[in-house]
Amino acid sequence: MSILTLLFYAIALLIVVATAMAVTRRNMVHAVLYLVLSFFGTAMLFYLLGAPFLAALEIIIYAGAIMVLFLFLIMMIRLKTLPGMFFPVGQLLPAILISAGFLVVSSVMVGRNPAGWAPMPAAQASPLAFGVYLFQTHWLAVEIASMLLLVALVGAYVLGRRVRGPSADAREEAP
């Protein structure tokens, strides 16, 4: 067993534990912090598999930007922790059924004879090559995505103004 394999299993264990903690915590802030930990683990996994750029993106965007936004939201809204079961029974039952089905299917797939399988060739790209490819062959898609972000921004602005309540709108229209 090489050192890389050992590292892989250690990180995988870390991710599983951190994610399990994240979904079971009652305190939202704790849950988000565990999720950040899990993202860090995923990033390390990407690095180990030879994708340093993806690892950096995972930390910068998911752990850094999105999760910090979540933290801000939770701290500002101050959600009350509800007593009782986290899921109502009506939702728990279908969830258990679906995950049991998933377990059966995946164990059948794992148990199949692996003869004739070919490993996928590893695709490795430097950040430079990736960027050149993206902006040369798919720059229309990049532009559309930027428009999408602009629309989201306008939407957030409109939504944010509306949430202040009807009195705020009425005051705007008065003059």
């Binding site: 798919h138 898609a141 559309i144 428009m147 629309v151 306008v154 939407g155 409109v158 939504l159």
Partner: peptide, 27 residues
Amino acid sequence: VHLLAIVLALELSSYSLYILVFLRQEH
């Protein structure tokens, strides 16, 4: 004619429509 562009264009049209529906004056 590229699936990536098609998906993004579809999302863009959907999102602008969601917000347009939301613009209704009566809350």
